[in-house]
Write a protein that binds this DNA or RNA. Structure first.
Lengths: 205, 205
DNA sequence: TAGATTGTTAATCGATTAACAATC
DNA sequence: TAGATTGTTAATCGATTAACAATC
């Protein structure tokens, strides 16, 4: 693997390649080309080859890429060749949907703890998990050595909860609250806000 | 407004500015600067000024931007100075969470129709809306002249449902299914896949 | 072998930043 | 007026594309 710094924009495309390759593998396909993969994900063949070649020579001239091998390599690069424990903060509708979501399986993640500050909800179960008191976020996450959290609390609470998560050692936050979070450089945030995503498209209508 | 083509990457930042400005307005703030807004959203002041200036001269030297005025202008540019009707396809957990989501209010969208192909669900209500038969997607969306849809169906069904949506006149799809969609150039897609978003961050852990 | 496709280079294209005159 | 901050230009930086030798 190349030691140079890889641009974030390339890292951002790898999970998309991974998802498409996984899908091909599920369909029994063994081999693909940058051309074919590009058509699946809507990215040029040249860019796919360039992106992948940042990390090694995973293809073969004339035949393309072995899907199984490339999957292994991409999982290794993205560090999803393991299962990450994830904390979920906020047991509202969105929290419930995520807790019940089957899509994390085989993609490197599992929810292991759920927190909420609503006394009526604390102690209730979602699936197999008991909702814990949000007061215990810091100690609970520290004790379980959790590095990833999903945040589905109301916007006004999001920053202060994020601060607690970071204090507890969380380094990656998937933020569903419609607000930009202020975090240190060594903490990553991804934003999921349906209204913002929709507003990105209305311009073109 | 400038007639030149605005890069999509700029359009993508406007909803983030809009959200932050809305928040400031809610807090009673009347004026801001590119510097201050930049600190809120984690973008350089120079870039914010450049982005905004693509559309007109909305600020004042020495004092910055009137938040109310800039909000109006951004809403106009993004065409969210109106309410867009949105169709929701898929009444699973995620569909329910979106149907109950309060965050679309005041941001330009309202769900007006929900479809599912599960006979057990058809006719049931989510909030005030009755779940319609997915067989009626094309006629229903055409009749209501809906241009925006949110897709929360299982991955294997997503492409064929998307094809029906496009056939019905939908031009913007917010896709929650973990699969890349193939759509014509005049249709926009935004992807929300929590596993993909998480995989974008694990590289750095 | 002939055909296909990679990995990589160089050229092009586009986005970001720094700096500052204009001006509120 | 003095200070602050915009809008814009030019410089820098980074990403994408085109093209092709290498080679399976």
């Amino acid at each position: 693997m190349n030691a140079e710094k890889i641009p974030d924009i390339i890292i951002g495309r790898l999970p998309v390649y991974l998802r498409a390759l996984q899908r091909m593998a599920d369909n029994g396909v063994k081999t693909t080309s940058s051309q074919e993969l590009g058509e699946h994900v809507g990215i040029s063949a040249a860019q796919i080859r360039k992106d992948i070649s940042q990390f090694g020579e995973f293809g073969k001239q004339g035949t393309g890429y072995s899907i199984g091998y490339l999957l292994d390599k991409l999982r290794e690069i993205l560090k999803v060749d393991r299962i990450w424990d994830v904390a979920l903060i906020g047991a509202g509708d969105m929290g419930h949907a995520l807790a019940n979501y089957q899509g994390f399986q085989n993609r490197g993640f599992r929810i292991v703890a759920i927190f909420d500050n609503n006394k009526e909800k604390i102690g209730n179960k979602i699936g197999e998990f008991v909702i814990s008191d949000a007061e215990k976020i810091v100690e609970g996450i520290k004790a379980a050595n959790i590095k990833i959290a999903m945040l589905t609390v109301p916007a006004p609470a999001a920053q202060s909860v994020a601060d607690k998560l970071i204090q507890a050692g969380v380094r990656a936050i998937l933020n569903y609250a419609p607000i930009s979070l202020n975090v240190p450089n060594n903490v990553k945030v991804q934003y999921i806000d349906p209204a913002t995503h929709l507003q990105r498209m209305t311009y073109y209508l």
